[in-house]
């Protein structure tokens, strides 16, 4: 068994044991923290497909995170107001059902990723970083200045949405649901990584000319990866909005994009479990350092700087060594 597999199993075990322990000890706040970590992990896994596997440094993934969040906010707010989204040409009503919300979140963020990706992928390198950042900002400002759904104040949903057969208001049940989503996403991602598509995507990062010479179009590969990546991040956005029962333009802000990227870097770029470990450490730091100092972002910044300058490969890289090639 490779050392990375052991680390992955330990990570999952910690992620299960901590909230279960908190449940036994009746500490709902810790369960909520763990749920946050799980949801951030899903967002990170989504970005990791584009960033790690595809080498596409997107600084605009908050757009998809926020679109997922707004999909939930808009559908649920219409449902709680008993006002249909539209009556003509056909009736569309709001909903409080998570599976439908997730579907809408995934489809709408995938469409946004397809559009943004189609334009941004015409460029590469530093242009790509700036353009994804700019498009992310465009959606952010749109959400702020569009008054119909709360504008700058965001949308509040009074009761968490439902999932058939579960009481989602119970923290441990909602955690379980999010954890299952994370496991499914991780499983799907491991399949994608080793599929012909995943291998071609990784090759397109390392040597696009060679990929082209065997008849594969790197642009299309990257566009598919970027769309998939946006869809997964959108799904996590819907969960995040449901966790907070609140969605606001903050979810779309560029700091959010930066944070999702930070999860991956702390854990390890292009590692399947990198974002999971990264998100757990981020939440832990936020909780511990946030208790020590109001200005905990200084310490986070210093830590991030140290990782980038001296510990490339993040936590998994440091623990497992360079078993996986990631240039």
């Amino acid at each position: 068994m490779r050392r990375e597999h052991i680390i992955n199993l330990v990570t999952l075990a910690v992620l299960v044991v901590v909230p279960l322990g908190a449940w036994v000890l009746d500490e709902p706040f810790i369960i909520t923290l763990a749920t946050r970590a799980v949801i951030f992990a899903i967002a990170g896994v989504g970005l990791n497909l584009a960033l790690g596997q595809g080498g596409l440094v997107s600084l605009g993934h908050a757009a998809f995170f926020g679109i997922g969040g707004y999909a939930m906010g808009i559908l649920a707010s219409h449902a709680q107001a008993y006002a249909p989204l539209m009556e003509w040409p056909f009736l569309i009503e709001g909903t409080k059902s998570m599976p439908i919300i997730w579907l809408v979140a995934v489809v709408s963020s995938a469409l946004a990723a397809l559009a943004i990706g189609a334009l941004s992928l015409r460029t590469s390198g530093v242009y790509f970083i700036m353009i994804t950042l700019a498009f992310g900002q465009m959606i952010y400002y749109f959400a702020i200045s569009w008054p119909a759904y709360g504008g700058e104040d965001g949308l509040v949903v009074y009761v968490r949405n439902g999932f058939p057969g579960l009481n989602t208001l119970d923290p441990i049940q909602f955690f379980g649901l999010c954890f299952c989503v994370l496991c499914i996403v991780l499983w799907a991602m491991s399949r994608v990584q080793n599929s012909a598509f995943g291998l071609a995507l990784a090759s397109a990062r390392q040597n696009p000319v060679r990929v082209q010479s065997v008849g594969i179009d790197p642009y299309r590969l990257r566009l598919v990866a970027f769309t998939l990546s946006g869809a997964i991040t959108g799904l996590s956005g819907a969960l995040f909005a449901d966790l907070n029962r609140f969605v606001s333009p903050t979810m779309l802000s560029w700091q959010m994009s930066g944070e999702i990227m930070v999860f991956i870097i702390i854990g390890g770029v292009a590692r399947l479990f990198g974002p999971v470990i990264g998100a757990m450490i981020f939440i832990l730091l936020e909780h511990v350092l946030g208790g020590v100092s109001e200005f905990w972002h200084i310490y986070l910044g210093a830590l991030l700087l140290m990782i980038v300058l001296f510990a490339k490969g993040g936590v998994i890289g440091a623990l497992a060594g360079r078993e996986v090639a990631h240039d």
Binding site: L51, V262, H297, I298
Partner: peptide, 30 residues
């Protein structure tokens, strides 16, 4: 800091300068 980044890839530059933003912003707030 910055001169250590010239030979790094863009991802490292983005992250290190993002870290600098956190330090500058919170430092100024402090």
């Amino acid at each position: 800091i910055i001169r250590r980044l010239y030979n790094r890839d863009h991802l490292d530059q983005v992250l290190a300068t993002f870290a600098l933003i956190l330090i500058f912003s919170e430092g100024t707030r402090w």
